[in-house]
Design a protein around this nucleic acid. Structure first.
Lengths: 262, 262
DNA sequence: GTGGAGCCCTGACCCTGCGTCAAGGTCAAG
DNA sequence: CTTGACCTTGACGCAGGGTCAGGGCTCCAC
């Protein structure tokens, strides 16, 4: 007859694990000798090895319980289940490997490669790092919300940034990161922004935009803009004076709230 | 500004997880609004995604804590570590898949295919199911202790079972599963066993056996034999009378315990 | 202005699969 | 008889959260 530690060592598990299986009802409690010690026979070793084999394959102990008592049909089905789970776990780990590789490679992660390329291009063109960081955060939010549309928007941004006039506007806007609400450059910047928007509007008149962005995301991005630029509220007011509202998605102001709609 | 649930959904985690990371000091507690709600900025999303990516890769939260504050060098080293672990886990799961595939294919858990084949052959040759079950359990024990040597032993067993005389001896031994200790067939069976052992001994005189099996395993297998056959003790006594001791590994008795050794 | 839905807060217990004391009883050897 | 290696039960601890419980906000509709 075997003691608990002999049993455990034959099956390659710890004594604690054996007692745990007893308490779970997985392995039946054996006879006790006169001093209360558990005494096992060889069949218990076999049982224990079966339990460990399933547990090692990642089957939860509660299922092991059912399986050791299951018929062949049921058992085969369960095995297929376990195999599916193992495959899923392998895939998950492969994805994890890719993700942490990205994470080690650079500032990316949570950002698709096009966006990373765009941020790199901004750096090359001399944009301030603070602005790039803000831009990156915005794109993270966008990627989290509408991952499928990121590359379409990214293409537009890439084109914009390579456009001479627009790039200069962006660069000057970038300087706003540390300006105060009463900065003298603001009115002329507001003029340049409205000029561009109006030009773009004229060009794309009648053109259908892609899928519209949700109000929530626009609000979120606007809020992020306001948080990052101390003078953002002032700029937005200046734009409203010129007939435009919003930032992420600038639209003609309706003079709504004045009692009539146009 | 983001509420906790917005933050959580952007990063693809639960609200509870975010609070958990706060309590672990992984993610800094953000400002609260006037009603005590946490308010996050977009940078928190970046942080949170980074944390999740590491945690998903199986990095314990305590290490994630170190890593998010680590420099590039240290981080890269840690990432290599994590990647090694992930590869190892993938391999482990692939091995598990193979094991459970075997497990589904054969009628039993924790047995290598050669053993399953052997048991199938026993069934074909007309051995009783009870005997096959006992044999299976023995092989589970052997496979657990000395997995590398199973196929060598299996080859021997396969040869034995195809040997006419020996097979008939085995078949008759199989009938012992339900015999009583005073069964009249026992003495002649003991004679046949000793005859075979002596013949085998003569043949293999001077031949070196493979690796010896450990005393513990032999004792365990003997115990399993005794547990399974009510008449096993009687048979062992009969063998001792004929100068042999043990069962799994039958050896010439030394008359030890009689005050002298030969 | 008031009710209810749907957020938010903290604190506390629950889960798995054991590891790790703690506090004692037992057994075999010297 | 002592020592050290076992055995017993019971309880707490770990990660990584889930899931109440018992409260407070806020916002929108009526």
């Amino acid at each position: 007859m075997l003691t608990i530690s002999q049993l455990a060592s034959y099956a390659g598990v710890t004594v604690r694990a054996v007692r745990h299986y007893h308490s779970r009802g997985l392995l039946p409690e054996p006879e006790r000798d006169r001093s209360g010690y558990r005494r096992y026979d060889a069949a218990a070793v076999v049982e224990l090895i079966k339990i460990r084999t399933l547990a090692d394959a990642g089957v939860p102990l509660s299922r092991v319980h059912e399986l050791v008592a299951a018929d062949a049909e049921e058992f085969a089905e369960a095995v297929r289940d376990v195999d599916r789970r193992l495959r899923a776990e392998i895939r998950a780990r492969q994805r994890s490997r890719e993700r942490i590789a990205q994470l080690a490679a650079g500032d990316s992660l949570a950002l698709p490669p096009e966006a990373v390329a765009y941020l790199d291009r901004m750096r090359e063109l001399g944009f301030r790092q603070e602005l790039i960081d803000i831009e990156r955060d915005s794109w993270i939010l966008i990627a989290a919300q509408i991952p499928d549309q990121v590359s379409a928007f990214m293409a537009i941004k890439h084109a914009q940034i390579e456009h001479e006039t627009l790039r200069r506007l962006y660069l000057d806007l970038g300087d706003l990161v540390d300006c105060t609400p009463d900065d003298p450059r603001l009115p002329s910047l507001a003029d340049r922004v409205t000029a561009f928007i109006e030009a773009a509007e004229a060009q794309s008149a009648g053109m259908e935009e892609g899928e519209p962005i949700s109000k929530e995301l626009i609000a979120l991005l606007d809020a992020a803009f306001v948080d990052s630029f101390p003078c953002a509220p002032r700029l937005l007011r200046l734009l409203e004076e010129r007939g435009w509202t919003g930032w992420t998605d600038i639209k003609r102001a309706d003079h709504a709230g004045m009692g009539r709609s146009s």
